[in-house]
Computed example of a mutant assay.
Amino acid sequence: MSAVLQVPPASAELAVAHFAARLAFETDCSDVAADLGAGVDGWVLIDTRSQESWDQGHVPGAIHLPTREIAARAATVVPAGAAVVTYCWGPACNGATKAALEFARLGHPVKEMLGGFEYWSREGLPVETADGVTRRPVDPLVAPRGVACAC
């Protein structure tokens, strides 16, 4: 018997609803980078990590707003009507989820950036510190050189 098909796949109708819903809540590093590079507005990127983490490096253009400060400061850093994209450390961290929940409670449309800062930097995307903007080497396990995901 198939381990994959031991639980049958959902119907196409249920699958459409499920995957469309996931995309309504999530985005990825590549899409965030594309929008930032093109100067697309209407949304803000929020880094929810601690000050020490932010200082180690963050996405250029992100706003630093630790999760514990969202309720008190969101109105001062997020323009009215703007969608919010949250990120934290990476896939093993639920900080972006906690932050997204806080923004949703405040009435903001919100998405999480899958992979967080870990995958942002592992994909060789720009990282900003007090010393300026740099790019770290691409990790070939997440973004093979010369190969585009094209998703």
Results as ranks from 00 to 15, higher is better:
Val147His: 12
Arg122Phe: 05
Leu45Gly: 11
Ala83Arg: 15
Ala24Pro: 03
Pro126Arg: 05
Ala104Pro: 00
Asp41Ala: 14
Ala20Ile: 04
Cys29Pro: 05
Ser53Ala: 15
Leu101Pro: 00
Cys151His: 12
Pro79Arg: 08
Ala71Tyr: 05
Ile46Phe: 02
Trp43Met: 09
Cys29Asn: 11
Phe117Met: 06
Val142Ile: 09
Ala92His: 14
Ala72Lys: 12
Gly115His: 04
Phe19Asp: 10
Trp43Leu: 08
Leu114Lys: 10
Thr129Asp: 08
Phe117Tyr: 08
Trp120Gly: 00
Pro66Gly: 10
Asp28Lys: 02
Ser30Arg: 13
Ala75His: 11
Gly39Ser: 04
Asp31Lys: 13
His58Ser: 02
Val85Thr: 15
Asp35Ser: 14
Leu14Ala: 14
Gly95His: 09
Val7Gly: 03
Thr129Glu: 06
Ala17Cys: 04
Asp139His: 08
Cys93Gln: 06
Val85His: 10
Arg73Glu: 08
Val133Cys: 07
Thr48Trp: 07
Glu26Leu: 15
Thr67Gln: 09
Leu45Met: 12
Leu141Ala: 14
Gly107Asp: 01
Trp54Pro: 01
Ala21Glu: 13
Val147Arg: 13
Met1Asn: 11
Gly146Arg: 12
Ala150Arg: 13
Phe117Thr: 00
Pro66His: 08
Gly61Ser: 05
Asp55Pro: 01
Lys111Met: 10
Arg105His: 11
Ala72Ile: 02
Asp55Trp: 02
Leu141Ser: 13
Lys111Leu: 07
Met1Val: 14
Ser11Gly: 14
Glu52Trp: 07
Asp35Ile: 01
Tyr119Phe: 09
Gly42Ala: 10
Lys111Cys: 07
Asp28Leu: 03
Val59Ala: 09
Gly115Asp: 03
Arg136Asn: 10
Val85Tyr: 10
Ser2Lys: 11
Pro8Phe: 08
Ala34Leu: 03
Gln56Ala: 11
Ser2Pro: 15
Gly132Phe: 07
Ala96Thr: 06
Ala17Leu: 14
Cys29Phe: 01
Cys29Thr: 15
Ile63Cys: 03
Asn94Met: 13
Pro66Phe: 09
Pro8Tyr: 05
Gly81Cys: 03
Arg73His: 06
Ala17Ile: 10
Trp89Ile: 11
Val59Trp: 03
Ala74Thr: 08
Leu5Pro: 00
Ala92Glu: 15
Ala80Pro: 11
Ala148Arg: 14
Thr48Lys: 04
Gly95Leu: 12
Tyr87Asn: 08
Arg135Glu: 11
Asp55Ile: 06
Ala83Tyr: 06
Trp89Thr: 11
Glu69Ala: 08
Pro9Glu: 09
Ala71Asp: 11
Ala62Gln: 02
Met1Leu: 13
Glu26Ile: 09
Asp55Tyr: 02
Thr86Tyr: 05
Ser121Lys: 06
Asp41Pro: 00
Asp35Gly: 11
Asp28Met: 04
Asp35Lys: 15
Gly90Ile: 05
Ser50Pro: 01
Asp41His: 12
